[in-house]
Amino acid sequence: MTAGHSFTLGQTAVVATTARALWLPATQTLCVSDLHLGKAGRIARRGGTMLPPYETLDTLHRLATVIGDLAPKMVICLGDSFDDLDAADELLPDALTTITQLQSGRFWYWIEGNHDAGPIRIGGTHVQSLTHAGLHFRHIATEASSEVSGHYHPKHGINGTGPARPCFVYDANRLIMPAFGTYTGGVKATSPEISGLFGPKAIAVLTGPSAVAVPLKRSPPPRGSRGKFY
């Protein structure tokens, strides 16, 4: 039993879990997006502040917990797994060992994102996109249907019930995943760059202690506000 919100995307039954991962029960496939491993290191390298350098371990620990619970046959990392290509090279030995252990005995796909486009030296299969179990997995959403993507780090909240939480957003055609990485912010799911990708019946699934599904009401787009993303 997986804690989460179950629904059907295209013809495929999926579960949006409380832990910000997507679970495909039929094929025992787990999908996570936007891990941004090595983010603190990248910020320091570029002359920024020295943030607590524990986010890579924390992200991997949480991923290990999800993998331990579900024992997937296949894991799909949906892009921006590394904060940049140097970050992938600079991972500490502990982190590399953890990744190797997590990969053992299962298929592992790294889908390229805008942060980590290019070859990396870490094991697993590197692809630009992947079609699996009737769904198309890629980092940034396109016009295609039955699509699972990441990139936008959506978050959503319900007025009067506390702060916004990372969320899944889906409608009949596509699903956008929340960011899994520890040091990842969020963009409001109601902002035009996200809500514009969906039809009027889009649903947001808030993650956290429980997975809570709510209709995503589209707000009128404020003029001239276009976001930039990491």
Binding site: A40, G41, A44, L51, P53, Y54
Partner: peptide
């Protein structure tokens, strides 16, 4: 950064 984990050897401020 003063962290127990010395991660910034190369990128000290």
């Amino acid at each position: 950064g003063g962290y127990a984990l010395c991660a910034y050897d190369k990128w000290k401020r």
